[in-house]
């Protein structure tokens, strides 16, 4: 699980990745961490520390809400749920990514036609 993707590339997408996990169901810190590894096909690991910072930001912006689970063993889990605003942001970011992806591909791999 070497970080083959540079942190520079992933940084701007942390929030969208978390929103993608949460739009598929409520979850908590460590589980979200594991789901991201699973999503990447074990190619990428987003550190838990990075996740908590992102949770705080997303919650402040109203994109996610949190609530405590009722586990009794080993302490309560803090679950996160995506809000309507969060879903909107996810869709916006997804569209922006698809656009950027297409353009970047042309910029990086495209050839110029010599007239």
């Amino acid at each position: 699980m070497d970080a083959t993707i540079s942190t520079d590339i992933i940084r701007g997408h942390t929030d969208t990745i978390i929103l993608n996990v949460l739009r598929q169901g409520d979850s908590y810190g460590y589980e979200i961490y594991k789901k991201i590894i699973e999503l990447s096909g074990k190619q990428y690991e987003l550190k838990e520390a990075t996740l908590y910072t992102a949770f705080r930001r997303l919650e402040r912006e109203g994109c996610i809400v949190s609530y405590w689970g009722d586990e009794t063993q080993g302490g309560r889990r803090k679950y996160y749920r995506i809000t309507e605003d969060g879903r909107k942001l996810y869709e916006q970011n997804k569209n922006a990514w698809n656009f950027a992806k297409a353009v970047l591909d042309k910029l990086i791999q495209g050839g110029l036609e010599n007239d």
Binding site: G29, E48, Y52, G75, R76, K78
Partner: peptide, 10 residues
């Protein structure tokens, strides 16, 4: 509490 719970699970 959140950090402790997740760390214990890990």
């Amino acid at each position: 509490e959140e950090l402790a719970t997740n760390m214990k699970e890990r």
